[in-house]
Amino acid sequence: MPSEHHARVFLESIIWAGGRYCPHCGGLRSIKLAGESSRPGLYQCSEAECRGQFTITTKTPLHATKLDLRIWISAMFIVLTSSKGISSVVMARLLGVNQKTAWKMGHAIRELMDDRNGELLPLEDIVEVDEAYVGGAPKSLSGAYNPRGKGTGKPMIFVAASRDGQARARVVADDQRATLEPVLLEWIEPTTTTLMTDGSTSYPGMRKTMASHHRVIHSNDEYANPETGAHVNTAESVISQVQRALVGVYHNLGRQHLQRYLDEIVWRWNHREQVRDVVKQWTTKAGVDREKSTTIWKPIPVLDQMRVLLQGAVGKQMRRSKEYGLCWP
């Protein structure tokens, strides 16, 4: 992109793919302001009750940005192509901005990855669930001690993963059924779901609302049951992505922003590959026609990922607070 104008046109083609609209009132009629005092990309709503001015970044996480839009697009590219995330220190060095700016940009991109509006489809068919403790003070700190198991002070995350490739994750207070079941019911269609869990005592009571429920008992060295097809390896793979990001990139995930980092990791998991079923046909040497159905996993191009990321940008706002933290209007 040779200029910021090209970056603005690129963002407008994605965010306003269905036509330009006013982010204040949703009106479809607007005019471009081209006066000498008008900044580039400024429009005014033509609705009599609105008449608000806006740009492509209005009421998005990029709202009121003073940065070149090419820097924002570069930041999105870096985040989407990183396998485990990227720290604000490294992003600042790559983009030529200071660390505080890169930190805020990273959280703005995670705001785009948030599914707060419940736009994702429910998990279906076979769904695995598991929970884990993550974060806590690094062991290298003097006096830092994190007990194992339920005696730890680390925050708990609850993960559900469908075997078709989609996943969800949320920070929860504890692993009691009263806490986990309402969250799980937000993510799945219980009447058509086969639930796969480990031996935790939180799950047996949920079988009444599920189509079926199978368990593996890790304490008995059972990690997969060939007869029922039970295992939670997919959910544990999602948790391992969280652990890899913690160990290799962020080093410490505090409670305040842990859910935002989970949103990033799960978004990257959900958009890493697209599934396509292919039927292969061939004839054997004996002249017998054979047919086999196979599933092909193809990586999603970064540009397509960016289109998905930006399609719901309007309405997701994030600003600097007076204390130089984050706030949400």
Rank of each mutant, 00 (worst) to 15 (best):
R148S: 12
S219Y: 10
W269E: 07
H271N: 10
S3F: 15
V129G: 11
M210K: 01
I31R: 11
L95G: 01
E12V: 13
L69P: 01
R272G: 15
T283M: 07
E131A: 06
D198T: 09
Q305Y: 12
Q281D: 09
L141T: 10
A224F: 15
W72N: 01
E4W: 03
D277L: 12
V266R: 03
A144Q: 05
I157E: 08
L326I: 10
V308F: 03
G254M: 08
T81W: 08
M196A: 06
E227M: 04
D263M: 13
S88Y: 04
K139I: 10
I239R: 03
L303R: 12
A211K: 07
V171K: 15
A48N: 02
K322F: 13
E264R: 07
V172F: 10
R260H: 10
S202N: 06
Q274M: 11
R168D: 01
G151P: 01
E291D: 06
L258Q: 05
S240N: 14
I296C: 07
I73G: 04
P301T: 12
T194I: 14
C22D: 02
H257L: 15
S30K: 04
T179G: 00
E12T: 13
S87Y: 07
H214E: 04
K292A: 15
G136C: 04
S88A: 05
H6S: 15
S74K: 03
R70H: 13
S88I: 04
A167P: 03
R168W: 02
C22N: 02
V159D: 07
Y223M: 14
R215Y: 15
D130M: 08
R320P: 00
A235M: 08
L262V: 14
Y223I: 13
F158V: 02
E227V: 07
I239K: 06
A167H: 11
G18Y: 02
S13W: 08
V79W: 08
R260A: 11
R8F: 09
I86Q: 08
D68A: 00
R93V: 09
D175S: 11
K285D: 07
R39W: 10
S37F: 14
K59Q: 09
V183K: 09
D198S: 09
F158T: 00
T209G: 05
P40G: 11
R168V: 03
S140A: 12
L69W: 07
G19H: 11
A245F: 13
G315V: 15
